[in-house]
Amino acid sequence: MAALDSAGKLALELEMPARRRRRLGIVFWLASSWIALVVALAIFADLLPLADPFAQALLARRAPPSAAHLLGTDALGRDILARVIFGARASLEIGLLAPLAATLVGTLLGMLSGYFRGRFETFAIGTTDVLLAFPPLVLALAIVAYLGQSVTNVILVLAILTVPAVTRVARAATLAIREREFVTAARALGAGHLRILRREILPNIMLPLGAYFLVLVAVTVVVEGILSFLGLGVPPPQPSWGGMIAEGRDSLDIAPHIAFIPAVAMFLTVLAFNLVGDSLRAITDPRRGAS
């Protein structure tokens, strides 16, 4: 891409995202509200007047939505609404905690390797290269298979798998900032490494990393869904969206709502996190097409 004559082009290219960003206004708030709603339902699930998500009613199996069961019942006669809401708990617990842990570790590693460079950087980036050399889902499946399936193990595995990506993003952001004037100025004023990292670098990489975190949440919810769908994630009978979709698959022909209701809940949640993350990224990163 020719850099010299790009000013005019840039204006042209920026026209699109700018228009889109303004349009995203309503969408952004809708997405945020959906996330808030799902989070609130998941937190207060115990206090809500819901049916017992484990109670089986063998006479009311695969019932369509009705007044007694607002979203119907599954193949064992369990209330789908209650299971979707309790399933949100598992999805959000894994979907938020794994990226959170990965972001903490990855930011630290990325900042240190981008700031100090040298051997530490070589080692850290080499390690991320090895982890990135595995197709992520295959590695996740293998580790869960050996570790045994539990919510804690899934969080652990997905966090480890996410660290390399965060490390790279944090390192790239740090590299861009460490040569800036205000860092040189801070150093000239006699600030130590710790102070520069904490007061000059961290605040400047926090916003892009925050936006990236939200996208990671979306990705992690999907991967958790895949693991649970394959029977290697949240152990049944504990409800999870992926597990519910897998169970619903068997009655797809006679009662498609059993699979599709958790699927819609999952899709909307993933979409909402992607939308919010994308709008935040567009705000924090003015470059066109930056990812």
């Binding site: 042209l12 889109r20 698959r249 699979a259 899709f267 939308l275």
Partner: peptide
């Protein structure tokens, strides 16, 4: 770029990126 067609396709593409693979598979089977 920026036309109604472009924006519609961009929206569909963005939405598609949020569809988990197993969900799409089940939808297609259905």
């Amino acid at each position: 770029p920026g036309s109604a067609f472009d924006r519609t396709v961009a929206g569909i593409a963005f939405g598609s990126l949020s569809v988990p693979p197993f969900m799409l598979a089940i939808l297609l089977i259905f």
